[in-house]
Computed example of a mutant assay.
Amino acid sequence: MRIYQFLHNAFLFAASRMQAAGLEGRKEEQRLWIQVNAYRDFIMATGQVYLFEDYLAGVAPTSRPHVSTALGARPDTTSQRVMALLLKAFDETPEPEQKQSVSLLIHQVNFIADTGQLEACEDYIHNRLDYAPLAIAHFTTREEAEAWLMGPAEPPSPADILIGDEYYTAVYSREDNVRFMSRDYVIEPYIEELAAEGIPPTAPAFETRAEAEECLKSHPASPFDFVSIAGEHYLAVHHKRLNRHTLHPVASTLTQWEEQKRVVEREEARYAAMNTEGEDEES
Results as ranks from 00 to 15, higher is better:
249 P>F: 04
175 E>W: 03
160 D>F: 08
75 P>W: 01
110 N>H: 06
169 T>S: 15
44 M>K: 11
105 L>P: 12
19 Q>T: 07
39 Y>W: 07
64 R>V: 14
213 E>V: 04
58 G>P: 06
5 Q>V: 07
148 W>S: 12
76 D>N: 14
8 H>C: 04
256 Q>K: 15
237 V>N: 13
209 R>C: 01
204 P>F: 04
83 M>T: 10
264 V>K: 13
155 P>F: 08
195 A>M: 03
21 A>W: 00
128 R>V: 00
243 N>V: 06
147 A>H: 11
220 P>D: 06
244 R>D: 00
44 M>I: 12
86 L>C: 06
45 A>K: 13
168 Y>W: 12
182 S>D: 08
261 K>R: 15
78 T>C: 08
230 A>C: 05
155 P>Q: 10
216 L>A: 09
204 P>W: 05
37 N>G: 08
4 Y>H: 11
213 E>P: 01
241 R>F: 07
271 Y>E: 14
67 V>K: 13
183 R>A: 14
171 V>T: 14
100 Q>E: 13
108 Q>A: 06
111 F>Q: 07
180 F>E: 05
223 P>V: 02
274 M>S: 10
200 P>M: 06
87 L>K: 08
83 M>A: 09
99 K>T: 06
53 E>Q: 15
106 I>D: 08
237 V>G: 15
28 E>I: 00
278 G>N: 14
47 G>L: 08
66 H>D: 10
164 G>I: 01
121 C>D: 03
43 I>E: 06
74 R>K: 07
217 K>R: 15
192 E>F: 08
